[in-house]
Nucleic acid binder design. Structure first.
Lengths: 236, 236
DNA sequence: CGCAAAGTTGATCATAGTCAAGTTCTGTGG
DNA sequence: CCACAGAACTTGACTATGATCAACTTTGCG
């Protein structure tokens, strides 16, 4: 697709970013965008790379993480459709991406290159305000990830990420909320070893709180998970 | 002191924030500031409180941390003279402080209330750019705190914080770099128990890397600490 | 001199990571 | 339709780390 072509927003699409703009602004902003497909595991921006574009996923799921000492990945947050990222591209001086963003599922993406995003940000003070507010909420999120990691036990982190992911990427079924996550992915986002994740999920399955299938987790009782995530350690 | 009175910047004062402004802008910005003293342990902003002012320490030392589950504090970064904080006050919608900031040493502070900071930010696009760039570097810092906490051992974190603090608050002496930190404070910023900090410092003292006095730590060999902070775990 | 803050030391313990050696699942090609 | 490769997951044994607690000593200040 090329800039200027009509961008069709997917049905049910909501974006905190676009919501902060007026209809006229939205029209201009969308007109300046370029749409492109994203495939699974595709890296959309790499931490440390020169920030060269602003991105807005339309469909699919991406993950933002930081690489630590060549190898291990540190999950920071999901990027859902409507979540603007690559904000570093909007800074005055050329700067680098703070985190790596990688597609977890395939989907589609709107992008604005440096010229376009600079132009828009200069033209619409509204957009600048929206972006600053977004940046603040991301910062809050990141600090929270740290707080969670430091102050919660492994089972609590798992429960918490299940609850959080349920809200973000859960599909409501008749017998609970279904998450398309492998043990390994859950372990990754909860900052736990895959073995710990496996053991804990089994225990919860025995207790009837979740049900497991290869690649998916069915949450049968959100309240009980929320309870575990909140207070004192889990009791075996 | 009241707004409009002449603000005297302390000798040797440097500020990334002010450096990004033109002399004329600096003049206007300083004229709109209010100066006030800060005493030890004074809380300058509280996480969750409605952001009502922007702050710039002139002298002294402050610490930014987050409170987790009523009680424990999670250190995020030092605030040195020249470090602007309370950026939440600049957001378009009323919003709350993301972190708590508390004075570690006494000193003095410039503040701008909501009206003043809104006025300045509207008047000087330059200031907005500077603030965004600051926000980005804070965000980077915070993510880094997380990465460090997750991927380094306790002795590595201690070594790292000693090195980092040396650069920020160290006083160069003839026999090394002196830090005014109690064991407890070091433990706090390195996210380690005071006992672990004590034990580790003793070990390093025996090895001649540091020397301890009540309330101060003398770093005798920065390179060796940097080495410890970097690669594999410590060897006893 | 006395008292509180700062620091020490040893014993103990819970957490959760690591590793090895499995089992189960699922999609693919013969 | 079945076999099979490889991914996903399990399970148990082991272990390092570092927190916690209690009891103690040292330091510096008024």
């Amino acid at each position: 697709m090329k800039a200027g072509s009509t961008v069709r927003l997917p049905p049910g699409f909501r974006s905190k970013f676009l919501d902060a703009l007026t209809p006229t602004e939205i029209k201009t902003v969308l007109a300046a965008a370029r749409e492109e497909p994203i495939s699974r595991r595709q890296v959309l921006q790499r931490q440390g790379e020169l920030a060269h574009r602003l991105c807005l996923p339309l469909t699919g799921l991406v993950a933002a993480y930081r690489l630590v000492d060549e190898g291990s990945k540190l999950f920071l947050r999901w990027g859902l459709p409507g979540d603007l990222f690559g904000l570093s591209a909007l800074l005055a001086e050329p700067s680098t991406y703070l985190v790596t963003v990688e597609a977890v599922h395939q989907g589609a993406l709107l992008t604005w290159d440096l010229a376009a995003s600079r132009m828009l940000i200069g033209q619409f003070p509204n957009m600048l305000r929206a972006v600053n507010s977004l940046a603040a909420s991301y910062m809050d999120d990141f600090i929270d990830v740290l707080a969670v990691r430091v102050s919660l036990t492994a089972p609590q982190r798992l429960a918490r990420m299940l609850v959080k992911s349920a809200r973000q990427i859960g599909r409501v079924g008749d017998d609970g909320i279904k998450l398309d996550l492998t043990n390994e992915q859950l372990a990754f986002i909860a900052q736990v070893s895959p073995f710990t994740a496996s053991r804990q999920l089994n225990q919860w399955q025995v207790r009837g709180i979740v049900r497991k299938n290869r690649g998916t987790i069915l949450l049968r009782s959100l309240p009980r998970l929320e309870e575990i995530a909140k207070v004192g350690s889990y009791r075996p």
